[in-house]
Design a binder for these strands. Sequence first.
DNA 1: TATTGTTATACTCTATAACTATA
DNA 2: TATAGTTATAGAGTATAACAATA
Lengths: 178, 178
Amino acid sequence: MDAYDSDERTSGAATTPGRRSRRTAADLDETAESGGDLDLSGLTGVVGYRLRRAQLAVFEDFNRRFQRFDLKPAQYSALLVIGDNPGRKQSEIAAALGIQRPNFVAMLDELERRGLAERTRSTTDRRSHAVVLTEHGRRLLAEARAEQAQQETDLGDLLGPGGRDALVSLLHRLTQAE
Amino acid sequence: MDAYDSDERTSGAATTPGRRSRRTAADLDETAESGGDLDLSGLTGVVGYRLRRAQLAVFEDFNRRFQRFDLKPAQYSALLVIGDNPGRKQSEIAAALGIQRPNFVAMLDELERRGLAERTRSTTDRRSHAVVLTEHGRRLLAEARAEQAQQETDLGDLLGPGGRDALVSLLHRLTQAE
DNA sequence: TATTGTTATACTCTATAACTATA
DNA sequence: TATAGTTATAGAGTATAACAATA
């Protein structure tokens, strides 16, 4: 983990960006020596900043949990989408995940190398690859889904009743509009 | 923007991961040809996934807004923290932002090259650099703060009354615990 | 001519080891 | 011996152009 933990709680008027600290040049020597905490009030109420930090924290937690599967978030989401959409085109899976087609090639190569997924030539359009999970892939995905459900449960405990659902709903609205 | 827009709204029981779609091998030919939307229900309720997508969307919006300042999110946050903590050590600023000390060097170099910030030798400890904003940096930061406040206002409009504050609060809780 | 998968490539972010100058 | 700033470097992640096979 990195060093962002020295944070302050979000102020009441969160819409207003943090107060402008009024310091003059005369304060410089003093502040330079004081080893106290920094004033981060300008960042605490900023949605983009909070989103970034929260995403990093949750991904770190994810990586800890999924170490035993050797799966990163992007790989898990790929297995999930392939598992729920067997036989779809490689490019469709990539697009659904927001991964550029060229970048998805190496990722699928790796999943295939590990025997989790397979490319099969489509009979109708010989340009495209229909992607499916192997039996091994389905078994691993089932275990991963259980671990992922556990993370959601733990996040629910952390955020209080309804908090997790509210968060998901608010986050979803951000990706619909912008 | 990338191709994640083909999303579904979050289901009622958000705590439960998306339903397991039960498809047999016999369905493969059919699904391979159907050009319909993919089933992304397994991802819609996942906090980590939603966080990542939302963060990317908000950062994209940020980048559009801050194009006229030629400031990326990390640069804006650096200006903000330096502005609110003038004279603090270079490494303190970096740590507060969660940036590795080596990686902060080039970033400060760039801010200095553009005449926005300055390194000054500390009189008490000649190893460290006290970092401050230039007058130009303070003026740019003031404008940037206004634009950033506008983004928060627009996000508030998007998320409804109290929605933005609730989001900030929920996100904050995620970075305290994990 | 357009699309699918692919290769090559480049650019940004991030992480670590090791050097230097100071303490 | 430890710390602050720095350099070099390596690894992810991401983006674009262009090619071969196929439609």
